[in-house]
Design a binder for these strands. Structure first.
Length: 145
RNA sequence: GGAGUCGGCCAGGCAGUCGCUGUUCGCGUUUGGCGCGAACGGAGGAAAGUCCGGGCUCCGCAGGGCAAGGCGCCAGGUAAUUCCUGGGAGGCGCGAGCCUACGGAAAGUGCCACAGAAAAGAUACCGCCCGGGGGGCCUUCGGUCCCCAAGGUAAGGGUGAAAUGGUGCGGUAAGAGCGCACCGCGCUUCCGGCAACGGAAGUGGCAGGGCAAACCCCGCCCGGAGCAAGACCAAAUAGGGGAGCAUCGGGUUUUCCCGAACGUGCGGCCCGCACGGCUCCCGGGUAGGUCGCUCGAGGCGCGCGGCGACGCGCGCCCCAGAUGAAUGACUGUCCACGACAGAACCCGGCUUAUCGGCCGACUCAUAUU
RNA sequence: GCGGCGGUAGUUCAAUGGUAGAACAUCAGCCUUCCAAGCUGAUUACGCGGGUUCGAUUCCCGCUCGCCGCU
């Protein structure tokens, strides 16, 4: 298999193609304003390791923001690992995440947790938040109609 | 092989798929930029703590001194150091080796609790001793015991962390460096060494405790801040400066000048006070962006000098530059089954964390040959 | 990333290198018919490891934990 099996032949000019597995800069939350947008009206999903917030955006694709604080995870190497795991999981699941903005935050238990536990936790949070936001959006739109 | 000392090195490897980031090249493009493709590069020995020393940048500054802070055996290395190397001294260890803030206590001040007579100009508590006075007893030239005041004495007791050189012999009323021998200490001379210091000889007769990580004295070093330094580009909004235009009337050829009116706020109203529209330009400057940003006291190899730290010469190499911050996930495979841990301007040190393994030099004990 | 400050009872703070103290809190007793107040007594601490010193909460060094400033 010499070439990558890319499904997006008619969409060659971007990693924004939801079916690809790339993770360019446009898919991240960078500005303080973008974070504020999510923090204002978030859907929240939380367990012992992570808190994940989500909100429907106007972009048409999912984006990820990371807020791994020094206070919750002391060691720099550990913080980098958590961020990598979050990016990786987001990258692989992105085709199912609609057009939500996510913010991932660490909780104290993430300091010592095994990396496979973190990955599972992330996938669970994606699923829960997508479901909640879908139902919310449908309800509000139907009431408008 | 066992126990141990010192020095150096490695920090999972390989293959595949999907991703992130920098440089170069090619192609496309709305040509600053963005996208796609390819090649190559992409965390550490501590990147950490920020404890020292520099480079670099800005600010301050004629020069010098004081203060504050730091350092402290000697010599050398270095851009520089509180670091490193070599040496000396003291201490620990059977040894290989290891450790040491290691100047000055007769420059001055201060402190040394409790205990003890006394904690620093020995002002003698218990003792010991000569002579004197009083008294008792006896075998009455005298001896012995008790008491008294004065004196001599640092050998002994006891206290303490520490008590005014140690041990021995002589000496003495008892004692004492009072004298002698050895050891320690000080001074002088000579010898070795760049020096710290060491050795030898002579001499003094003890010079007077400890603490300077107590104040201090002596010698040396030292301006302040830090890449969030600093430089540049610069939207929107508010505000500063300037120019022009704009409502009505009059003067006037025009430029322009004079007067009036209007809106908002304070107010019940009047007077009064304050603010006032549009366009363009200027400078300061926020968000944001660019530079600083990686070729350097650089690495590797060889040769030479030096005990060594290191230096010199030649050749070769380019080896992270991110900016919410890049190395991961999954699969297969091998093994010692993978610790501590993530660059943020850059170097040189120190300190701390650390799974396991390899190499070299050396010491000790035992056994065998 | 850079710079600075601190750690003492359960809490808030003291203390020349020589037995760590005060207030509040807790517990027990007295007082009161009972409670509160008051009185008496008790319990509980120098962040950790080295060094200097006869002796360290204090002086020095290294860790650790917490706080603040620069954006």
């Amino acid at each position: 298999m010499p070439a990558a099996p890319r499904a997006a032949r008619d969409f060659p000019s971007s990693g924004l193609d939801p079916a690809s597995f790339g993770f360019p800069r446009d898919l991240r939350l960078l500005e303080p304003a973008e974070f504020r947008f999510v923090f204002e009206q978030p859907e929240r999903s939380q367990d012992a390791y992570l808190t994940v917030l989500a909100r429907v955006n106007a972009k048409g694709y999912a984006r990820l923001g990371l807020a791994i604080s020094k206070k919750s995870v002391r060691k720099a190497a550990r913080r980098n690992l958590l961020k990598r795991l979050a990016r990786e999981s987001f990258r692989l699941c992105r085709r199912d995440l609609g057009r939500l903005d996510f913010v991932v935050m660490a909780r104290p238990a993430a300091r010592d947790a095994d990396r496979s536990l973190i990955s599972k936790s992330l996938e669970r949070h994606w699923k829960i938040l997508v479901q909640r936001c879908d139902s919310r959006w449908c309800n509000s739109s139907s009431s408008i109609d």
